[in-house]
């Protein structure tokens, strides 16, 4: 199976927000970072993929199967971490183990216990006594313990300190050592994504505005900083967006190499995903 996840023309209307023709593809064995502002539609898209919302139009295939007609089979094979949705907090980690044992045929008790140990999480304390970081770690352990093929993670590292984040990132990279396993994760921790994501999908105001390999973005995109005089000489087809700052102009370009050959502008900076997001959203053309 070439693609583990295909989203085609996803549309969903709310009173104050619309998802419009959202389409993207996650090839098997890869990690996709899903980025965008708060309220841009990341969570809604994820909810549609998981059928947490059902009143959308469009087609979603997971593991080559339609997500609506093969709900149960798909869900046996995916692990999720969602923002703010989990087991009732009066329960304990050991309750989750007992419950999940009866829910997933492939629940791996030993693996779950190992993650708890690795994360230093207590078995016999109610979730409500956990810190935010501990909760996230428990959610991640729960998502992984039935050997899923696809992880769908909404902000899995929010609330984690840098050390815990590194730990979790390593677990994700271990997870895809099996080339059948893939991850879709939304995150505001863009530096983490720059390291581990193979693909970046960028959603803004309910629409996908960019979906490319992370290497393509980091190696070919760049930021040009120049004076107004220099800016006037640059042809509009050579940049994607620009932004007028107080002392200079900032341009988002998509082909660093050919730009360098064409223009003599001094400052061509390496791009970060944060820069990309800001310029794509705040920039104009």
């Amino acid at each position: 199976m070439k693609n583990i996840l295909e989203v085609k023309n996803l549309n969903k209307k709310y009173a104050d927000f619309t998802l419009k023709n959202v389409s993207f593809t996650l090839p098997t064995g890869m990690i996709m970072g899903f980025i965008g502002e708060n309220g841009a539609g990341k969570t809604t898209t994820i909810k549609a993929i998981l059928n947490i919302i059902t009143d959308y139009t469009g087609e979603i295939n997971i593991m080559g199967l339609n997500n609506k007609t093969n709900d149960q089979k798909i869900k046996e094979n995916i692990g999720v971490v969602l923002d703010d949705m989990f087991f009732p907090e009066v329960l304990k980690a050991q309750d989750i183990n007992q419950i999940m044992k009866s829910i997933y045929t492939s629940w791996d008790e030993e693996l779950f216990q190992n993650y708890l140990k690795q994360f230093n999480l207590p078995l016999k304390k109610a979730i409500k006594t956990f810190s935010k970081g501990m909760r996230k770690k428990l959610e991640i352990a729960t998502a992984l313990a039935h050997h899923p093929q696809l992880l769908i993670l909404d902000e899995p590292t929010s609330g984690l300190d840098p050390v815990a984040r590194a730990e979790v990132i390593e677990i994700f990279q271990n997870f895809i050592q099996n080339e059948k396993c893939s991850i879709l994760l939304s995150s505001h921790q863009t530096t983490d994504l720059e390291h581990i994501a193979d693909y970046i999908t960028f959603i803004n105001k309910g629409q996908i505005i960019l979906s490319a390999t992370c290497d393509e973005i980091l190696n070919h995109y760049a930021i040009v900083r120049c004076t107004a005089a220099e800016f006037k000489k640059i042809k509009p087809e050579d940049y994607l967006k620009y932004r007028q700052e107080k002392y200079n102009y900032e341009l988002l370009i998509t082909n660093k190499k050919s730009f360098k050959q064409k223009y003599t502008t001094e400052v061509i900076d390496k791009i970060t995903l944060d820069d990309l997001m800001v310029l794509m959203i705040k920039g104009v053309k």
Partner: peptide, 16 residues
């Protein structure tokens, strides 16, 4: 995949 994990970079990078 192993190289990507150990260098903390993406699979596509090491593949390239």
């Amino acid at each position: 995949r192993l190289l990507a994990k150990d260098l903390h970079c993406s699979v596509i990078t090491t593949k390239n």
